[in-house]
């Protein structure tokens, strides 16, 4: 039994979650604390991966990161290849899981009232000190719950990953794709095992996220 898809999925999901955490925190903070023109539109764009068909998302990513895409061209000249590599799977998983991180993180940051942050400013603290000593300590549970959800979503990513990274056994074949492959080729033993792994994992993730969330 080849466990490569399991390890690849963990690796891809890990990097996707880190990316979602970094960009998602910035986005969530801006959405929670700032008012600006086009905020509604930005919200719609961030939430798109939740409703758009994964294949359509994958198509956009291909167009963007392909060698003729404008981002792909820039990365290509730097010697970085995205499409049909494990990095492509990271990009697909990152974009798909971003909204699942931003939503709870934004709610958690919004939950830290403006009065609390203003009180800290009035007591002489800089913006960074306010974030470090007030906002983050009060919002970390929501942020963590978001990160767990993002990780879970990344492990299950299928459609967009297939479009961007393809299905190359031992290179870009993640767990969900390996399950699809096993079913297609009639290898029900492998399929059953992989399905069991991912089911147990999803169960425990949602359970953990619920536990963190409840104590908010």
């Amino acid at each position: 039994m080849d466990l490569f898809p399991l390890f690849l999925t963990i690796k891809v999901s890990f990097f996707a979650t880190v990316l979602a955490l970094v960009t998602g925190l910035a986005l969530a903070w801006v959405m929670a604390k700032k008012d600006f023109w086009g905020k509604g539109l930005l919200d719609v764009i961030i939430m798109q991966p939740l409703v758009i068909p994964p294949t359509v998302l994958g198509y956009y990513l291909l167009a963007l990161f392909g060698r003729s895409g404008w981002l792909g061209g820039v990365l290509d000249s730097l010697g970085i290849e995205i499409v049909f590599t494990w990095k492509g799977a990271v990009v697909a998983a990152f974009i798909s899981s971003l909204p699942l991180f931003v939503k709870p993180a934004r709610a958690a940051l919004e939950g830290v009232g403006a009065d609390l942050e203003n009180a800290a400013r009035l007591l002489g603290k800089t913006e960074w000190q306010v974030i470090r000593t007030i906002t983050l300590p009060l919002a970390w549970r929501g942020i963590l719950a978001g990160a767990v959800m993002a990780f879970a979503r990344a492990t299950g990513e299928f459609g967009a990953t297939l479009m961007v990274a393809g299905n190359i056994p031992g290179v870009t074949q993640t767990l969900p794709i390996a399950i699809y492959d096993a079913v297609q080729s009639g290898d029900s033993n492998a399929a059953n095992l992989l399905v069991l792994i991912i089911t147990l994992f999803s169960f425990s993730v949602l359970f953990a996220a619920g536990k963190i969330g409840r104590r908010l």
Binding site: N118, A120, L122, G124
Partner: peptide, 19 residues
């Protein structure tokens, strides 16, 4: 900036840091 004004402010609901 607010932090350099040396203004003390007591909020209506006190805004104590809950943590």
């Amino acid at each position: 900036p607010v932090r350099n004004r040396k203004v003390g402010y007591l909020f209506q609901d006190y805004a104590l840091f809950p943590h």
